[in-house]
């Protein structure tokens, strides 16, 4: 009763950050349609190891769609052709028997390739370090219920906060822009009274860091939101623009 398919994989292989990369083609038979995309890659790696070859390197960790570690640009889509999921949640039932699947790493100036399909996404950490926080120390904070927050705002903040920092937005963007990532964090914290206090400072600092790290300029194409595995809304970018422009006019 288990359904299986045969596929051809075209996988980007690159020995190191400076090495020249290229595509390798692999054929895999009898892949269960119930297996996840990464489990299919596990099968490929097991096969390569048994042939005493080096396995394909790719980032992955929680395999339940929340850690943001998995990446992969599959058949022209970050996280593959299904919507609102990460690569680890993509299942082989989304592919046809005999299909050729092209797997590439995230391509962005700010995300250099480390090896094969693994890229360095520390640029996102640096943006958060520039201002993606509320400046409170441990202890000495008011009671959690001291400031009521409208449910609508809390829910909207939660939607923005569900960003997993995977980098699909910048990978999908034809401009290599990280605006959706930055906007999600700025939005989340600007919507909450706790974060409102330093909202202007945060928006300026995070945008400045994003620009410095070599991300591109947003042109509102919306590819980021379309490919976002957590469906973070494009309107967060409008809020970031608003926060940023207001902050600049106040200076």
């Amino acid at each position: 009763m288990e359904k299986t398919i045969n596929i051809t994989l075209k996988v980007w292989r690159q020995a190191g950050p400076k090495a020249k990369g290229g595509f390798e083609t692999y054929k895999l038979d009898n892949i269960s349609t119930d297996s996840s995309f990464l489990e299919m890659l596990d099968v490929l790696n097991e096969k390569l190891i048994n042939e005493r070859k080096e396995p394909v390197v790719f980032d992955h960790d929680c395999r339940e769609g929340i850690c943001g570690m998995c990446s992969l640009y599959i058949n022209g889509h970050p996280h593959g052709p299904d919507s609102a999921i990460t690569t680890c949640q993509l299942h082989m039932r989304k592919f046809k028997d005999g299909e050729t699947i092209t797997v590439e790493p995230w391509r962005s100036n700010a995300f250099p390739v480390i090896k094969d399909l693994m890229v360095d996404r520390r640029a996102y950490d640096k943006i958060i370090q520039a201002g993606g926080f509320v400046s409170v120390n441990t202890g000495g904070v008011p009671d959690a219920n001291a400031i009521p927050i409208p449910k609508k705002d809390a829910d909207e903040a939660m939607d923005a906060a569900s960003c997993i920092g995977c980098g699909a937005c910048a990978a999908a963007c034809k401009n290599g822009s990280a605006m959706l990532f930055v906007a999600a964090k700025v939005s989340q914290l600007a919507l909450l009274p706790q974060g409102k206090v330093e909202a202007a400072r945060r928006a300026k600092a995070m945008v400045a860091k994003m620009d410095e790290l070599g991300f591109g300029n947003c042109t509102n194409t919306g590819a980021c939101a379309a490919e976002c595995p957590k469906s973070v809304s494009l309107s967060n970018i409008a809020r970031l623009n608003r926060e940023f422009i207001c902050a600049k006019f106040k200076d």
């Binding site: 926080f133 904070v141 219920n145 809390a154 903040a157 909450l192």
Partner: peptide
């Protein structure tokens, strides 16, 4: 208390409380 102060968006009721 600490997490709310950091901007963790816990679920809230319509009255605005947790």
């Amino acid at each position: 208390d600490q997490c709310v102060a950091q901007g963790v968006p816990f679920a809230r009721e319509y009255g605005g409380l947790l």
